[in-house]
């Protein structure tokens, strides 16, 4: 098996006439944490949506864990979790029920759910509807959802957004835990200094193109 978790070659995606991603070629080693930086509209979210098979690339090719982005979407989805701007939660269901929906569809046990909700500091609100939650609390449920999936590749799109300082620490600890489990993590963020502490690589996008891909931290 390849040591690369994610490979992309000349990946491109457009919305209407505007190219949100253009000629993106990246090689992300398995088990690494990569910080994805770039201004608003630089293509970070589009890259994540293409890699997670939500949308198809218009040009180029790519693979996740050796599975082709266009041909093996189901295989990729089985191994990947995306923390998106949309939290993927049902407003009228409780935090616990939202996670139960995920567990039931994955065909896994519900037993880790109470522990995961404690982990994201929502144990006491587990049976409250998500509609009563703040944006930060919804984000925490989304993190519990990612952990429940036990993915091999994790894409975190602005994980610090809407969180309070204890939430920032939660993100850091979750990323460290995922890395210890051997998962490959890509993290799109504007919290560069904070993220650099847990990252192995930094990928910078500018106007949909790769500006730089460098090793940082211990890998530098």
């Amino acid at each position: 098996m390849s040591d690369l978790a994610i490979e992309a070659e000349n990946l491109a995606r457009r919305y209407g006439r505007r190219w949100a991603l253009a000629d993106v070629s990246i090689r992300i080693p398995a088990g690494s944490v990569t910080m994805v930086a770039g201004r608003n509209g630089s293509g970070k979210s589009t890259l994540f949506r293409v890699l997670s098979t939500v949308i198809r690339p218009d040009l180029g090719r790519g693979s996740v864990l050796g599975f082709d982005l266009k041909k093996h979407r189901e295989d990729i989805r089985r191994s990947l979790a995306l923390l998106s701007h949309s939290n993927y939660l049902y407003e009228s269901l409780t935090a616990r029920e939202n996670l139960e929906v995920v567990a039931d569809h994955l065909g896994i046990e519900r037993t880790p759910i109470p522990m995961l909700l404690e982990r994201v500091a929502l144990g006491s609100r587990a049976d409250d509807p998500v509609s009563t939650f703040s944006a930060g609390m919804r984000k925490r449920v989304s993190f519990a959802r990612v952990l429940l999936q036990e993915p091999r590749v994790v894409l975190l799109d602005e994980p610090y957004a809407q969180l309070d300082p204890p939430g920032f620490d939660l993100v850091d600890s979750v990323v460290r835990e995922l890395k210890m489990r051997g998962a490959t993590v890509l993290m799109a963020t504007h919290q560069l200094e904070r993220t650099a502490g847990v990252s192995d690589y930094a990928l910078t996008l500018e106007a949909g193109r790769v500006q730089s891909f460098t090793a940082i931290g211990a890998r530098a």
Partner: peptide, 16 residues
């Protein structure tokens, strides 16, 4: 409910 927070997209990504 499926469109409110793109919950349907989330289910398809599990994959369901």
């Amino acid at each position: 409910a499926e469109m409110e927070n793109r919950a349907l997209e989330g289910l398809l990504l599990l994959p369901a």
